[in-house]
Each structure stands twice: as structure tokens, then as C-alpha cells.
Amino acid sequence: MGVVVKKSSSVVVRPSELVMTDNTAIKLSSFDKGLKGSDHIVVRADNGEVHIQCTGEGVEFVEASVDCALKVANLLEPLPAARAVLDELALYYPAEGCYAPTNPLMMMQVTEFSCGGFVVGVTWNHGTTDGCGMAQFLQAVGKIARGQPAPSVVPIRWDDALPSLPSSIIEMQQLRVSLEPLDLACLDINPVKRDQPHQGWIPGSPCTMFEVVAAVLWRCRTRATMSKPESPVVLWFAANVRKHVGAKEGYYGNGSTGQLVMAASGMVTNGDIMDLIKMIKQAKDRIPDKFTRGWSC
């Protein structure tokens, strides 16, 4: 018998105390403007700048329960049963998607398991923050929930020190978030990581899980679509650039941009997988150059 997941209808949880917001407007940076949905979550000032309107209305909340223990669910294991539970637990916006003008900026769900353990899930409009920013924001919320009077790092939504992104970069980011995500099979990357010491790898510079997965997917995609071995093929990936642009500690808005890796199709499909990983690592190392030598991909 499968796991049973029950969910309540969403309700708006308002602040426990009256919040005087006077309709404060928080400006969005160019990192935010490059993401789909920013035009639906904001008001526009007379000078054309984009803002989030603070109304103090609260957060949309869903309560859920699962009839098994958290340990039994094995949510982090790459197993079909765990994936099925995650699909049931996932919190989604209505069918029209998270960028509809009537949808909230963020929805939160707390799921309680039979053992007393619980999981907190959120979904949000990408125009407000990225994954790194949301993780930082939730850490601050968690510390307050545990009784701390204030988080150790105060959340900051607007950072006037952030640079302005060129229009070409903004357009590329808008294209990225317009792509539909695909279900991916589980990849066993352990053999690749075990081979590192035998492939002339740079001492003290092991590859990361991201680099291995990106290299394998790049190769698989190229093999499936390659027309001519000499044709160029591009890998594009997002990168957290907060430390490179001097973002303030606590900044939880969008802080990511993209990086490109280019190679001939024949090299990607038939070359050594370690060479692809090295190319990805080198591309990551070049990210700071965007902010010191001018913008380019």
C-alpha cells in the first residue's frame, strides 16, 4: 500500500502583530529583472524602475501530513518510491503557473510525518529571489522560529552596490527561465569521480558533483543532437556571483548569472569526460573576470 499524503486548502497566514508597511516599495536589481515573472509581481514607478510592493498581507500557507515516518520515506534517496512521495509533497502554483498576476509571491507548506518530524517546502516567483537567496531567507526564518530574537545575519532585500547587468545578459537569463524543465534519470557519477586520481587531475582540486553531472548531460545531449563533428556546441549554466559583485552579507535577492562553455561537437561526444569537466571548471574560474574586465559570455 502506498504512502498517503493529505493537504489542506491554502490559507493566507497574516502577521501575528499589526505591521505598518505604508505600502513601502522595494526596488529590484537588474539580476531580478532578468527573470521571468518580475513584470507580474511589481509596480512600476514613474521613472520606469521596478519594485515589489510591501502590503503586509501575509504568506499563503498549506498544511500537509503523511502517514509514515520521515525515516521510512527516504526522501533524499534516488528511489522510485521516494520520488513518488516527493511528487505528492511538491507545492505548486495553480495550472497557469507561478507568473500569473493573481498568484502570491511565495507559498509555504509544512508537512508533518507520523513520527513527529516535519518538512518545510516553499515555491516562489523567481523574480523575487533565486535558490541561494531563498535558502538564506529560510535560514533566517528558522532561527526566529527556534526562539532567537533575531537572525545572526539580517536579511537584506535591496543592495544598491550591485552592478547593472547588460541587456544581452538579461535577455539570456529570460530565455533560460522560459525553458521547460525535464525529468532526468538518476546518474551514477561515482565511477567518474573515482577515476580522477588516474586522469592527471590537478592535486587538491577534485571535481564537484555539479561538474560531473553537467559534463555527462552535455555529452548525452550532444550525442543526441549532433549533426557535424566540427559544429560548435554550447553548455550554459547558472552561477552564484554574490561574492564576485560585492553583495552585502544578508542579501537574499537574485544574485546569479550565466556562463558559457563551447567546444566542437565531435570533441564533446568522443573526447575524454575528464576534459569536459576541466573545461567546465575553467569556465567557472573565469566568472570573476566578467566583473573586472567587462561583460562577455
Rank of each mutant, 00 (worst) to 15 (best):
residue 195 D to R: 14
residue 179 L to H: 05
residue 214 A to T: 05
residue 126 H to K: 13
residue 200 G to F: 02
residue 174 Q to S: 10
residue 198 H to L: 08
residue 117 G to S: 07
residue 245 V to S: 03
residue 148 Q to N: 13
residue 179 L to A: 13
residue 172 M to A: 14
residue 136 Q to N: 13
residue 198 H to R: 10
residue 177 V to H: 12
residue 245 V to C: 06
residue 195 D to K: 15
residue 179 L to W: 02
residue 174 Q to E: 14
residue 243 K to F: 06
residue 235 L to D: 04
residue 228 K to T: 06
residue 192 V to T: 08
residue 163 P to V: 05
residue 211 E to H: 04
residue 135 A to G: 14
residue 147 G to R: 04
residue 116 G to E: 02
residue 232 P to T: 02
residue 168 S to Y: 03
residue 156 I to K: 12
residue 156 I to M: 15
residue 127 G to E: 02
residue 204 G to C: 12
residue 174 Q to A: 07
residue 216 V to M: 11
residue 238 A to E: 07
residue 148 Q to D: 14
residue 166 P to I: 02
residue 240 N to G: 09
residue 126 H to P: 10
residue 212 V to M: 00
residue 227 S to I: 08
residue 223 R to S: 04
residue 242 R to Q: 07
residue 244 H to I: 06
residue 164 S to R: 14
residue 242 R to I: 06
residue 165 L to C: 10
residue 220 C to N: 12
residue 202 I to Q: 09
residue 204 G to M: 07
residue 209 M to N: 15
residue 175 L to W: 13
residue 215 A to K: 08
residue 162 L to N: 13
residue 144 I to D: 09
residue 182 L to D: 03
residue 196 Q to M: 13
residue 150 A to H: 10
residue 243 K to I: 10
residue 223 R to P: 02
residue 157 R to P: 05
residue 217 L to S: 01
residue 179 L to S: 09
residue 237 F to M: 07
residue 145 A to G: 13
residue 171 E to F: 08
residue 219 R to A: 00
residue 234 V to T: 11
residue 215 A to E: 03
residue 213 V to W: 01
residue 146 R to H: 11
residue 118 F to Q: 07
residue 118 F to T: 03
residue 163 P to E: 01
residue 123 T to V: 12
residue 232 P to G: 00
residue 183 D to R: 10
residue 179 L to E: 12
residue 118 F to G: 05
residue 192 V to D: 02
residue 190 N to F: 02
residue 128 T to K: 07
residue 241 V to H: 01
residue 182 L to R: 14
residue 212 V to R: 00
residue 218 W to C: 00
residue 181 P to W: 00
residue 207 C to N: 08
residue 151 P to K: 11
residue 185 A to C: 05
residue 212 V to K: 00
residue 237 F to D: 01
residue 159 D to G: 15
residue 240 N to W: 03
residue 221 R to F: 00
residue 208 T to V: 04
residue 117 G to Q: 12
residue 184 L to R: 08
residue 202 I to E: 11
residue 233 V to E: 06
residue 130 D to S: 06
residue 153 V to W: 08
residue 167 S to R: 10
residue 219 R to C: 00
residue 149 P to E: 03
residue 131 G to S: 12
residue 139 Q to E: 15
residue 169 I to C: 13
residue 190 N to G: 04
residue 194 R to V: 08
residue 216 V to L: 15
residue 137 F to T: 04
residue 212 V to W: 00
residue 165 L to S: 14
residue 204 G to N: 10
residue 182 L to I: 07
residue 243 K to P: 06
residue 150 A to L: 14
residue 216 V to T: 05
residue 207 C to E: 04
residue 218 W to R: 00
residue 133 G to R: 05
residue 215 A to I: 03
residue 239 A to D: 09
residue 134 M to G: 10
residue 202 I to V: 13
residue 181 P to N: 01
residue 194 R to N: 07
residue 219 R to I: 00
residue 190 N to K: 12
residue 128 T to S: 12
residue 180 E to F: 03
residue 161 A to N: 15
residue 147 G to L: 03
residue 130 D to E: 09
residue 136 Q to M: 15
residue 225 T to M: 15
residue 178 S to G: 10
residue 151 P to G: 03
residue 224 A to K: 13
residue 146 R to N: 14
residue 240 N to H: 06
residue 201 W to T: 12
residue 185 A to M: 13
